[in-house]
Design a protein around this nucleic acid. Sequence first.
DNA 1: TCTGGGGTCCTAGGACCC
DNA 2: TCTGGGGTCCTAGGACCC
Length: 431
Amino acid sequence: MSGFATPEVTEAPFLFPRTIFHVDMDAFFVSVEELTDPSLKGKAVVVGGQRDERGVVSAASYEARKFGVHSAMPLRTAAKLCPHAIFVNGHHERYREASEQVYQVLMSFSPQVEMASIDEAYLDMTGTERLHGPPLRAAHTLHEKMKAETRLNCSIGIGCSRLIAKVSSAKAKPNGVLWVAAGQEAKFLAPLDVGDIPGVGKVTEKNLHALGIRKVGDLTRFEDAYLEEHFGKWGLALAGKARGEDAGGWFDSAVGEDTSAKSISHEHTYNEDTADAQQIESTLMRLSEMVGRRLRENGFHARTLQLKLRYKDFSTITRAHSLPAPTQLDTEIFEQIRALFRRNWKPGVPVRLLGVHASSFEAQAMQGDLLEDNRRQRWEQALAAADRLRDKFGESSVSLASGLKGGFRERIQENPAGLPGQHPAQKPAKK
DNA sequence: TCTGGGGTCCTAGGACCC
DNA sequence: TCTGGGGTCCTAGGACCC
């Protein structure tokens, strides 16, 4: 350790100081549940599943947090720490709706809004003083409007970078506003734990501790080159972050830049591990359908398909295959996934989790085979029709299980309502 | 304690081409 | 027969976030 922090004059991506808001909803899932069931208010509430289920906590009320419950904790652990807690299954449809309302409120404040996840967003408020007044006043107005229109609390962090805004909103929780004035960034960050920096998780934190680095301020006493040596590219970014800069990767992008999805995936963890090949392939079929459906909804065609397998001991493998031409067809996805599964699964070994992942999105390429293109187009139309039926009659009303023996019967039985269980599109399945 | 599901980004090695 | 380097694509795994 030596020297002085070199005042680097690199190409600064932003030529004048920005005013960034980070708006983070307080205990979002819990708060939305309270809107539908006010009796939950003030109680210890755990969202994510039932107390005896395999799964983790998605969100915990502040009351439950007092007992040490936090998100990502196994449900069974939460039940032990807080036996009187009320366990609630997640309702993602409700959260999406609430998130949409939040977005509308934010959009009325700045055209530069970027939802970073379902319950948090960045706003570029640079240059809005004439409209909204100075940052703190604008934040308080926004905070009140959010409460009035969504009945939800949020916390707002304000700073000259995404990083500062994000860290300060975390410090403002719950239900607060915190502004870090220009020039005060390093001072604000210095006493915080290195783990408070977004992107520093358990592993990096441990590695930093091993070097004697515990506080963000400790980081600034090391040369950039030293950090780069130990942590590569990430170390360099870390040095910048300790100064409050949006160094590296996603943080560097302007608020509101292209955020279109890069991958789509679905997974399933069994309540009990299974080695039943038919059951497994039936699940893979269902997951392939879910992925295919989302691809069609978004107008995406994926070229790379990936299978994920997790075993009893939690060891996990992924196996990918890239197609010569991109697809959005359930059958093509399933065909590849099943081949990957059969090639990599040792019969008899119990499986805990299965996943189907699609990536490398491309505009659909013509195959140069008119007959083949025509067939594909009819399939896509049929699937879009099936998608609409599912919208109308529910997820289990239609299943295109052609090509799957055994699993097919099983799916039919899942259709007690007697709604259309078979779609005409099953007919042209033959090659 | 016994570990969900949906994502993003990064690293590293090997194949292949020039 | 031994010996290059760079670029790109693909695959596998892992850290991290909400």
